[in-house]
Write a protein that binds this DNA or RNA. Sequence first.
DNA 1: TCTCCGATTAGAC
DNA 2: CTAACGGTCTAATCGGAGA
Length: 423
Amino acid sequence: MRPSVRSIALIDCNNFYVSCERVFRLDLNNQPVIVLSNNDGCVVSRSNEVKALGIKMGVPLFKIRDQVQQHNVQVFSSNYVLYADMSNRVMAILREYAPLQEVYSIDESFLDMTGIHDIGQRAQAMRERVLRETGIPVCVGIGSSKTLAKLANFVAKRHPKSQGVFNFNMLTTRQAESVFSNVPVEEVWGIGRQLTKALDAIGIQTVQQLRTADIASLRKRFGVAMEKTVRELRGEACIELEEATPAKQQIINSRSFGQSVTEIEDLQDALAHFVSNAAHKLRAQQSCAALLQVFIMTDRFRDDQSQYCPSVAVPLPVPTASSTTLQGYAVSALAAMFRPGYRYKKAGVILSEICPETLHQGDMFAGAPEDPALMLALDQINARFGKGTLKLSQDGSRRSWQMRQERKSPEYTTNWHELPFCR
DNA sequence: TCTCCGATTAGAC
DNA sequence: CTAACGGTCTAATCGGAGA
């Protein structure tokens, strides 16, 4: 028996960060609103009003100062605690609508809705419920592959007539081809700027042209990823849903500073902080790392200042997830590469060569004994009383490097002390 | 020639 | 008042080194 066609849904929150801010500020509805990246640097989320003004994704705030002033655009720093909490609420509701869910990003989720009766109506019900219970508007795209579901979501977002739901599986071949002919290739999942340019050079501009191109020659020229994309566009599901997120192979924690720093003590403080965060993530996925890389760098946008961007890789004698052990190595690495006389703007740590913690447990011939119990206590106390309740001594006594975050909204859903009427 | 490595590229959000 | 531009993560690919 031929397997029935898959129905994969992609639910994507509309202008997610902006929508989160609006949930608690009804006065922001119909107003132009943007949310900024870390350090209040670039635009990462825009309301429709802002998109209509022609303000592009990713532009630095200082380049649009005039427009912001002129149109009274409301500006917010990123409030990740709020966005993560709102995301969890949305995802928990979506999970009820299908046996299989992949949480793809903070604002997107795939659901396998194959075989579900009356999918269009279910999708509408899902949208209404998410909006009612969380205040977040979402759109639903459906197709027989993940790539088609993504594309359908794009169509749903772009055409108000679709009422927020678009399903390729409900279309005749002729109708689908008409849609494909009207969507440029750069909207396809996996086709970025470079590929768009390269495809254009061989006469491929629309999704329909890509879908009907010769797979063998595309693969030869662009590789396996492109072949999968084309097959998916033809309706063949090549990329499966992944319910469990696999353990990370690499954990990076780094930040640009609010201001440049010149003292080694400031870098030490920042690195201690980054190591703590990275090691915490490592422990959260029950892993250890065998390689620690540490880097510091000057401001690459200042061509009037001398640049220095060293990094040091420290192979660890025994894989570890201990914040204290890792901090020790990070401090030595910093001492080895620090040169006075530069204005440092960014630093970070990378943990890699990651293995499960069970792999090295019981290694009685290892070097100095470690402190898994101490780390466990640290993590438990911080989980219970809030991040940053308990820290190691190196971490965060200097604040000179802290990122700029001048327009952050309250953590409405997770912190009593930040609620306006509790102050 | 094959394989393994690190570095680079490309893409996503 | 001034200066001002994110952070993580993965997979594929490429070129060189070594077997």
